[in-house]
């Protein structure tokens, strides 16, 4: 008997069980494990499983994680700052591109344009990060180019191994993720609304501010979440672009699990970061829902 002959409930269960098992094994179980471990203590290669809040206490009291000191911010605030900046830059740059494809490009050419926008995905993320190193590096494209033109004598050192290089790399890598949701939101806008606005006395620009922009807010919120959440967790880019000393929260966690040999602290850091990202995302979702309800 094939699954199509059974009751709708049985069919639903049969169709959903493989992905459900998959997410149970690869998402829920590791998450539960992380939560458990965050309340344990590392003893060499083993765990002391007595319940303790010591890891969380360390995160909230030691300066390197949240509080910071006179010279440096804590690693979590810095990471939030980097992600927020990347998100802002990405969304601001993605909006005109999405707008162009939705409003200017001939309808028959739109899918071609979307295809062109996804071309960066044809090379691996790691290679794209390395390419930015080649462009921004001490002997990179920008420095040798400027030197050859005689603009600078010594290579610029501020290009690589700092937060700016992380932000540039990530903003480029995540651009597509921001363009697509904004594009979809713009596509959904009934074009007669724009004509109605003009008919009621607004110029093209004020029509954009009063109609197009507010109606594309769901797409902007989607883009913000899609960029913000993964950039917090990205540890490859900071690892490669910050050099030996640089740390953002993602590679700090990675270090705790491996080199630092303190999985419970890493787990606790993960939980704290996850909660912060969760709260920020909820705020955005809430704003979005308020917006969609119609403000009165």
């Amino acid at each position: 008997m094939s699954i199509f002959d059974r009751s709708p409930q049985a069919r639903t269960a049969a169709l959903l069980s493989p992905p459900f098992l998959y997410s149970l094994l690869l998402l829920a179980l590791p998450l539960v494990a992380i939560v458990l471990i965050s309340f344990w203590t590392q003893t060499g290669l083993d765990f002391d499983t007595t319940f303790t809040l010591a890891n969380y206490r360390a995160i909230f009291t030691q300066p390197q994680y949240i509080l910071g000191n006179a010279q440096n911010w804590g690693v979590i605030p810095v990471s939030l700052f980097v992600s927020a900046t990347v998100t802002a830059i990405t969304v601001v740059l993605a909006y005109p591109v999405a707008y162009f494809v939705s409003f200017v490009v001939d309808p028959s050419r739109k899918s071609l344009w979307l295809f062109l926008i996804t071309i960066p995905f044809w090379s691996s993320y790691l290679i794209r990060v390395f390419l930015w190193k080649v462009i921004l590096g001490f002997n990179g494209v920008i420095n040798t180019g400027l030197q050859a033109l005689g603009v600078i004598r010594e290579p610029l050192e501020f290009l690589l191994y700092n937060l700016a290089s992380v932000i540039i790399t990530m903003a480029h890598a995540y651009a597509v993720f921001a363009i697509l949701p904004i594009y979809v939101a713009l596509e959904k806008i009934d074009r007669s609304l724009l004509e109605a606005s003009q008919d009621l006395g607004e110029s093209r620009f004020s029509t954009f501010l009063r109609v197009t922009l507010p109606l594309s807010v769901p797409g902007i919120v989607g883009a913000v979440l899609i960029v913000f959440i993964p950039t917090i967790g990205d540890y490859v880019t900071p690892q490669l672009m910050l050099g030996a000393g640089g740390r953002l929260v993602a590679n700090t966690i990675q270090t705790q699990f491996f080199k630092g040999n303190d999985a419970p602290l890493g787990a606790a850091l993960s939980i704290v970061t996850m909660l912060m990202v969760g709260i920020i995302s909820l705020v955005f979702l809430f704003l979005n829902r308020r917006w969609l309800r119609g403000r009165s």
Partner: peptide
């Protein structure tokens, strides 16, 4: 342009702004 004409239009789809009351 339409915004400077002494005409107003009722659109076939009505074009009511969905984000406004």
């Amino acid at each position: 342009p339409p915004n400077h004409r002494p005409t107003n239009m009722v659109f076939q789809s009505y074009a009511i702004f969905p984000h406004l009351t």
